[in-house]
Write a protein that binds this DNA or RNA. Structure first.
Lengths: 342, 342
DNA sequence: ACCGATATTGACAGCGCTACCAAGCGATTG
DNA sequence: CAATCGCTTGGTAGCGCTGTCAATATCGGT
């Protein structure tokens, strides 16, 4: 004989229903679609649930309904400040909603990403937020067959899997270089670390801008696969100076590198911007309060995360966003470090 | 008559079992406790599962077993670099294990924390990692009755709910001040933002050290409830200078404030450390590469997260750590910004 | 060859909830 | 006044897996 698995004192939906004097299924409906109940029963179930302190069992719900209320988020890094802002936006948008977040770290590997994707999609998530537009062919195929809203974040491009929100890294970098050119700088170096697809597109934007201005020179480019850091910014900047001592400006693919370059300038007693202009990318908080203040390209990361989560929710609620691809743009923030060449 | 909810093509445990020629329950055991099977059946189930691409249904597992394989993590902030490192440690430790992470943001509110705790514990988590030792009385009561490993992180103190890993913020701050005193500084200011309990204890450490040296002066202390930032570091430092123009050093409760103070010094053409010594807290990466390099108190955040997760796993696997309270310590990193007073 | 002990395996029911269908009910309509 | 309609409510079964216990296979010792 099998056991009687009794769980004494646990409040189940049945208890709530009994107290409210309705059937369990009616109580169930109260939590999923309150409008379907008559006002009287709705009030009775509500007060019964509150009185008993009922908390639904999500596992049972997921099993019976064949779907979860979890939104998966795949990002390449937990350390990068950029993703902290995106995450904050996502969490804020989902706060108070029925949905929870399952976060996974791909560590900048699309194979890792594919593995996590398979694992995750098997659990029938309510939605998915995934970083970038470079997934493996298999990942692509899997996502196209899956039946849940998917938002690709961080950049925009052709052929979204479902929805997309971000900006053009190519254009943003190009605009940063255009700014430096307009300020009178000519020998503009490029510093890049962890050359992920988005950083690569920034390099493309740099190359396009420099080529258009007939100023392109491969010796001005220093990149590495090493993860970014302030210290690395100093090192790369030193490398760049060794390769091209005559540079008058440097564009860094992120603000950490820019800060590192600034410190390296200080160590070399190089005046910024008089002897060396610096422009970063992302406009992290400290850029506005360094000495000198550092120019950067502002990207709307918090809004990106927030909107991505909202797009998922809206789709789930049947109010699909009119525009599946959202370009949040960017803006070049001009500060002291790239003041006009005198 | 009720429906036949057929799900065609879905691979369930039963399919795997049939292909392997064993009963479903044996297949189930393969995934939970492979050693219990004979080598032959183990191999058969394994190859059957691989051939069919079986992925277990976690909702069904959770419902049947009355517990989940989710470890909850409650942290007060997603933006703070400190927690990014802790999280990375946790994710790394749990990577490849059967456990997944449910992350929640308390926003430095213990009431919010209590709400999240109730919500979360109702889902029977496998374990819980929670920040700090200051929870509401109700939270405490709830956690004591719940039957899962709990690790309090970020600090150590008396009376752990279950396990604990961190360090003494009081001692760490006191050691930082002792270092400045040893270097010959006397009028040492204190800069504090977002005075959460741990920051408060750093202030206590500062006060203790200064009082012991008979140098305590309340005018040397500037604090605010505003969240920390580099910009705020500059502002607070300016406030401090206005209140106490004769200070010769400043201890900042975190590195962002220290960096902000450094920039403010540069703006005022104050030489660091000749006219003003600076010591931060946490030893973020950039402290080692600023100009001048900034002294700080190194805390082992990654290890803290990693060990906390490992303590949870070990407990779940029956190998409970010998020592429930782990003090990871700290170290004062002496750099240029607090060089000996000449 | 027999016994009990140990290692494997299987049968059964049920975890708590929701999908599906059907029924009840009062209101509306020709 | 009967037929019809829309709204609300309930009954039944089952989602996929695992806890409990029983049954069987294996083994060493006497």
């Amino acid at each position: 004989m099998a056991r009687k698995r009794i769980t004494p004192g646990k409040i189940r939906l049945a208890e709530v229903a009994k107290l409210a004097g309705v059937s369990p299924i009616t109580a169930s409906r109260f939590f999923r679609n309150p409008e379907a109940l008559s006002a009287g029963k709705r009030a009775r179930v509500e007060s019964a649930a509150k009185e008993l302190g009922y908390v639904p069992n999500l596992a049972a719900r997921a099993l019976a309904s064949q779907r979860t209320e979890v939104i998966g988020v795949l990002i390449p890094s937990l350390t990068n400040n950029v993703f902290a802002d995106v995450l904050r936006g996502i969490y804020d948008a989902l706060d108070g909603s029925r949905y929870s977040i399952q976060l996974a770290n791909t560590r900048y590997s699309i194979l890792q990403e594919e593995r996590l994707l398979r694992l995750f999609l098997a659990q029938k998530p309510a939605g998915l937020i995934i970083t970038g537009i470079n997934q493996t062919a298999d990942s692509h195929r899997i996502m196209e067959t899956v039946d849940c809203p998917i938002v690709q974040i961080m950049e925009v491009g052709p052929a979204p899997i479902d929805m997309m929100i971000g900006f053009s890294h190519f254009d943003a970098a190009k605009a940063a270089i255009a700014h430096l050119l307009a300020q009178g700088y000519r020998r503009i170096g490029f510093l890049g670390a962890r050359m992920d697809p988005r950083v690569q597109r920034r390099l493309d934007g740099y190359r396009a801008a420099m080529t258009e201005a007939a100023l392109f020179d491969p010796r001005l480019i220093v990149t590495t696969a090493i993860p970014t850091s302030v210290t690395l910014g100093g090192t790369l900047f030193a490398d760049l100076l060794a390769k091209a001592p005559d540079i008058d400006a440097v564009f860094c693919v992120n603000d950490d590198l820019a800060l590192g370059a600034l410190f390296e300038c200080k160590r070399r007693h190089m005046a910024v911007p008089e002897q060396m202009a610096i422009v970063g990318f992302n406009d992290l908080e400290f850029m506005a309060s360094s000495e000198p203040t550092l120019s950067s390209v502002r990207t709307n990361r918090y809004e990106m995360g927030r909107n991505a989560a909202m797009m998922v929710i809206e789709t789930l609620e049947g109010r699909r966003p009119a525009e599946p691809v959202v370009d949040l743009g960017f803006s070049v923030i001009e500060r002291q470090s790239s003041a006009r060449r005198s």
